[in-house]
């Protein structure tokens, strides 16, 4: 089997499990929608200045939904013991990381694809722009890249639910800053400095994914 096939096999397994049990995506989706609705009351999202707050609200919703999904995914696997089974498969541990990462990216993207039109309609913001989806993908990749690693680490602590955000939030701050900025720029149609942020975001993703890929082997070794 080529490496790509190994990764895809892991992704396929996760997708099948999710399609059968539907334990992750629905919960994440409802959560992210509710966050956006709640934010409407926390900030004024109807004025002229709604794009920056809207971008912030959107990412807060996605990040919290991701936390929920990442934590739940690992907890489910631990409970069923399927993660231990996965580790017994004679595959390079890096491939397991990439498979898990890709699965998480797909779940979060699915949530985003439903949330975005609703968000656009509720706050009357121009969300149907190709660049927005580039930014969404890069931001999701960064969050999921660190989140996949940290969620597995947090799962073997006594305070799983607390440890994941405590580890993820400070480390992922650069990704959060650049995605929120880039999203704001897209929504306000100020494209001149947008590419700067997109490049920066891509660079952050590359750095974080590389480190996570390298240390993953040490995290799951038992």
């Amino acid at each position: 089997m080529r490496n790509v096939d190994k990764i895809l096999a892991i992704v396929w397994k996760d997708l099948l499990t999710e399609v059968r049990s539907r334990e992750l995506v629905i919960g994440m989706l409802v959560f992210s929608m509710l966050t956006i609705v709640t934010f409407n009351f926390a900030f004024d999202l109807t004025g002229v200045e709604r794009a920056p707050s809207g971008a912030g609200a959107l990412w807060v919703a996605f990040i919290f939904a991701s936390l929920l999904g990442l934590g739940r995914a690992v907890a489910l696997e631990r409970d069923k013991g399927s993660f231990d089974g996965l580790l017994l498969v004679p595959v390079d541990r890096g491939m397991i990381y990439l498979g898990k990462l890709l699965g998480n990216v797909i779940f979060i993207t699915a949530v985003q694809l439903v949330t975005i039109p609703v968000f656009g309609a509720l706050f009357d913001l121009p969300v149907y722009q190709p660049m927005l989806f580039v930014v969404l993908f890069l931001g999701t990749l960064g969050i999921a890249g660190l989140g996949t690693l940290f969620s597995i680490m947090a799962a073997s602590t006594r305070a799983r639910e607390v440890m994941l955000p405590v580890l993820l939030f400070p480390v992922a701050l650069p990704v959060v800053i650049s995605t929120v900025r880039a999203t704001t720029l897209v929504l306000t149609d100020r494209t001149e400095s947008l590419m700067q942020w997109v490049n920066l975001l891509a660079a952050f993703d590359a750095i974080f994914l590389t480190i996570a890929f390298l240390v993953f082997d040490r995290v799951v070794e038992d």
Partner: peptide, 14 residues
């Protein structure tokens, strides 16, 4: 905050 997390993860793993 990152190093606070460093000590928290130590404390929460048996």
């Amino acid at each position: 905050f990152i190093y606070l997390g460093y000590f928290m993860i130590r404390a929460y793993i048996s």
